[in-house]
């Protein structure tokens, strides 16, 4: 990432609290940005903010994780950019597990938001990246995907699917010079977690810093805050007969 000019980034879920500082860091480096998300009016305000913070360009794209009809047109727009094309996905949703238990019909939406939506988009974009033979893909999953827990196992299942997808995509695109990095955040101070006091919480600003460092070091997978790597190693090693009795 030495030369940021002529770097284009499409960011899915650009309106999320976690994406905002990441976008601002890219803007400060003079990158060109495509903000993909659902709330077009809010994204236009954010696009203007990013231009004022130094982005070479900032363009809003209507993107809905639950409706892939427009994806080919979006990908065509991106394919028309000259220079290096990169992608990051911050999309996701986490309804209360109790709400899902009461209405399993919600599962389809959770899977779409956290997995099928971004994966479909990235799969459509993949040939464009392969043809260029350069670029970075950042996919934001969650530590919740590492093991199913009573408190959010549907969300966790969707994030696990996305992580497995990213690992395969890395295998595929890595051969063509495109680097795919999986990001697994622990709890982050966002609207989703407002008012909650959660262990080893980090901030969206720190997540952005970790992602940029990870890209610079061409890491395959990062945890943020970093301590979650250790915590999840421990959690993944708890034998199932014991784990099933825990509520962590």
């Amino acid at each position: 990432m030495q030369n940021w000019i002529m770097q284009h980034w499409v960011v899915l879920g650009a309106g999320s609290d976690m994406a905002r500082p990441f976008l601002r860091r890219l803007a400060g480096e003079g990158a060109s940005l495509f903000l993909a998300g659902r709330t077009a009016a809010d994204l236009e305000t954010l696009a203007q903010d990013l231009r004022l913070r130094g982005a070479a360009a900032a363009e809003v794209m209507a993107f809905d994780a639950r409706d892939a009809a427009d994806y080919p047109a979006l990908v065509a727009r991106l394919a028309a950019c000259e220079g290096v094309l990169n992608a990051a996905s911050f999309v996701g949703s986490m309804p209360d597990q109790a709400a899902i238990d009461a209405d399993p019909g919600l599962i389809a939406g959770v899977i779409a938001d956290n997995f099928t939506g971004p994966a479909t988009f990235l799969s459509l974009l993949a040939p464009v990246l392969e043809a260029r033979g350069t670029g970075v893909v950042v996919g934001v999953g969650s530590v919740a995907g590492d093991r199913g827990r009573v408190g959010n196992y549907v969300y966790g299942a969707a994030k696990a699917a996305f992580a497995t997808y990213l690992s395969g995509l890395r295998n595929r695109l890595g051969r063509k010079g495109v680097h795919v990095m999986t990001v697994k955040p622990g709890p982050v101070e966002t609207r989703m977690t407002a008012g909650m006091k959660l262990p080893f919480m980090t901030t969206p600003e720190a997540v952005a810093e970790d992602i940029l460092q990870g890209i610079a070091k061409r890491r395959n997978e990062i945890y943020t805050a970093k301590i979650w790597f250790l915590i999840m190693r421990v959690i993944c090693h708890i034998p199932e007969p014991i784990f099933k009795k825990l509520s962590i």
């Binding site: 609290d17 203007q48 903010d49 004022l52």
Partner: peptide
């Protein structure tokens, strides 16, 4: 503190 966007210059 979440309302933190530059609007115009």
């Amino acid at each position: 503190s979440g309302l933190d966007r530059f609007l115009a210059f």
